[in-house]
């Protein structure tokens, strides 16, 4: 990966079409799961978000080239996700355990 004259990764047209096909299929799957399969409440969100995460991985790894890229860029993305999870966790620790919901919210 290092060195002065390294070649940039060039995805083949077949690879790109395969990734897009995967994304199309997952989109149809998530709609079918949400609209035609009765999944009990907490798990419907988990299924929908899991499919979204797989789609996001496909886009980030193969369309945005992180799979072939320097690991530093992938680390930046993962750090952003980690800090987002931190923000959500700390905020929910407050918001979910209040005796009274904030008035007018």
């Amino acid at each position: 990966m290092s060195g002065q004259n390294h070649e940039h990764h060039v995805s083949s047209a077949g690879q790109l079409w395969a990734v897009a096909a995967g994304l199309f299929i997952l989109t149809i799957l998530t709609v079918v799961m949400a609209k035609f399969v009765a999944i009990p409440p907490p798990f419907d969100v988990i299924v929908a978000l899991s499919i979204a995460l797989v789609k996001a991985f496909l886009v980030a790894a193969f369309f945005m080239n992180l799979y072939w890229d320097t690991k530093f860029n992938a680390m930046l993305l993962l750090m952003a996700v980690a800090f987002f999870i931190l923000m959500v966790s700390i905020t929910l620790l407050d918001m979910l355990y209040r005796v009274d919901v904030v008035p007018s919210f």
Binding site: A34, D44, A48, L49, A56, V59, M64
Partner: peptide
């Protein structure tokens, strides 16, 4: 691709709640 990435999460969260 990032614009696509954000929509990938917006779509199930806003449209697909049953």
């Amino acid at each position: 691709h990032l614009v696509d990435l954000i929509w990938i999460f917006l779509f199930p969260l806003l449209y697909l709640i049953e």
